[in-house]
Design a protein around this nucleic acid. Structure first.
Length: 101
DNA sequence: AGGGTGACCCGCT
DNA sequence: CAGCGGGCCACCC
């Protein structure tokens, strides 16, 4: 299918995040060509949390897990299942950060 | 068409 | 180092 909007582009990139890794809203925004649209990225994921899109693997640039449609706690729970350790709702980007190229 | 919202980021205090 | 405010962008009403 074809990408017809900024949102779809965000989903496409989010799907590329491998299991056990995480990415940030800002990096995602940059990957889609809108380095300043980190906010819009979060908005997009919030309205389209599909099972095909691992939106739970997207965290804030400071390492905080950020928010989640089903609750921050649930997001952390999933991340831990994936193998990502979260302390005080924060993850080590130095270890789990996945960079786009 | 205009205004308000949101899973954010950066800078200043 | 932590907290507060403003700025930015895309989507919905």
């Amino acid at each position: 299918m074809f990408i017809r909007s900024f949102q779809d582009l965000v989903f496409a990139k989010t799907k590329l995040i491998p299991c056990g890794k995480v990415s940030t809203y800002k990096l995602l925004a940059k990957a889609v060509g809108r380095p300043r649209a980190a906010r819009a990225v979060g908005n997009a994921l919030n309205k389209n949390c599909n099972a095909k899109v691992p939106c739970h693997r997207v965290v804030r640039s400071d390492g905080k897990v950020g928010g989640f449609r089903d609750g921050t706690a649930a997001k952390i729970k999933i991340l831990q299942k994936e193998g990502v350790e979260a302390v005080k709702e924060k993850v080590s980007l130095k270890k789990y950060l996945y960079k786009f190229r």
